[in-house]
């Protein structure tokens, strides 16, 4: 197949993609210089960057720096960027289908269907950016001469322990950024290739640098660093192995992080807005009414 990087039918040697981390809008190797091998689409082994504690640190700094820019965009603008993600994935659907097929053990045709679902899911979340306010905001009829309203605002820097499937990764990432949060996606080992390819789609989708950061590595090794990092405001542990969840939640308490855990069995279930609402803070504003 044309996209198989190892070899082609004509005897030409393919050019393989170096799988790097994606931090602050740039593809970088782990500062630790470490990689780990994961099965590629044609039975080959692919080396993937293995993020260290310092890479987590760099990703958090980048995300924090980006937060005002990403959360400060108009909801319309954010919606267009999420929609652009859908466009980018659609245009790379063959690459994603191959990765999904090998990862999820299905035929390329079936995998293509899952890629399409992922594209559609980005589109679904893209539409939420400018509707969330209508859903979660309220004007509160207080007993006094005050105008009082509450509105959802992004929680901030959210670390997402992603599941392995493309659809799962899409769901956890798209919902987080749709609400205006910046994300640090910590890939599940088996989702490394899909995640790094997704980073390429991010890189070409007009996200400001740092809005989405992708770390590949060993969850077990990163869970403590990520969960206890005081620069992170929220944790989505839906993709975290069950045995790591107590440690993660426990570490999260050191800075009162919001922890969201959704035990989704099947990511093909229709998406729910509760994921978008998981990482919003409700801000209430009071002002007197007078002349």
């Amino acid at each position: 197949m044309a996209s198989n990087p190892t070899s082609t039918g004509s005897g030409r040697l393919g050019v393989a993609k170096t799988r790097k981390l994606f931090i602050d809008g740039a593809f970088v190797r782990s500062e630790s210089g470490r990689t780990f091998a994961t099965p590629g689409p044609s039975g080959n082994e692919v080396n993937v960057a293995m993020a260290s504690r310092k890479d987590v640190r760099d990703a958090v700094s980048a995300a924090r720096r980006c937060l005002p820019a990403w959360s400060g965009l108009t909801a319309y603008n954010r919606g267009q960027i999420l929609y652009r993600m859908a466009e980018m994935i659609e245009s790379r659907s063959l690459e994603f289908a191959e990765l999904v097929a090998v990862r999820e053990g299905c035929t390329v045709a079936e995998a293509k269907g899952r890629v399409e679902m992922s594209v559609d899911r980005w589109v679904w979340y893209a539409g939420w950016t400018d509707k969330l306010g209508n859903l979660a905001a309220s004007v509160n009829p207080v007993a006094g001469p005050y105008f009082n309203f509450s509105l959802p605002v992004p929680t901030g820097v959210v670390a997402v322990f992603a599941p392995a499937s493309l659809l799962g990764i899409t769901s956890v990432l798209a919902s987080t950024v749709a609400a205006g949060n910046v994300a640090i996606l910590v890939a599940e080992e088996r989702g490394s290739l899909v995640s790094t390819s997704l980073a390429e789609a991010v890189a070409t989708s007009d996200f400001p640098a740092g809005a989405v950061n992708v770390l590949t590595g060993i969850q077990d090794e990163l869970v403590e660093t990520v969960s206890s990092h005081r620069g992170i405001d929220g944790l989505d542990i839906s993709g975290l192995a069950p045995e790591l969840r107590v440690a993660s939640e426990s570490a999260a308490s050191s800075s009162v992080k919001r922890v969201f855990s959704e035990s989704v069995v099947e990511w093909t279930e229709p998406p729910s807005v509760s994921r978008v609402l998981a990482f919003v803070e409700v801000k209430t504003v009071w002002h007197p009414i007078g002349i």
């Binding site: 009829p141 207080v142 919001r258 803070e281 009071w286």
Partner: peptide, 26 residues
Amino acid sequence: AGVVWANTYNRFDPASPFGGFKESGF
């Protein structure tokens, strides 16, 4: 901040959500 009082302070009402960001809770 979860509550912003503009030109007033320390007002509370059952119809009005109250609560914090960051280490003020969730």
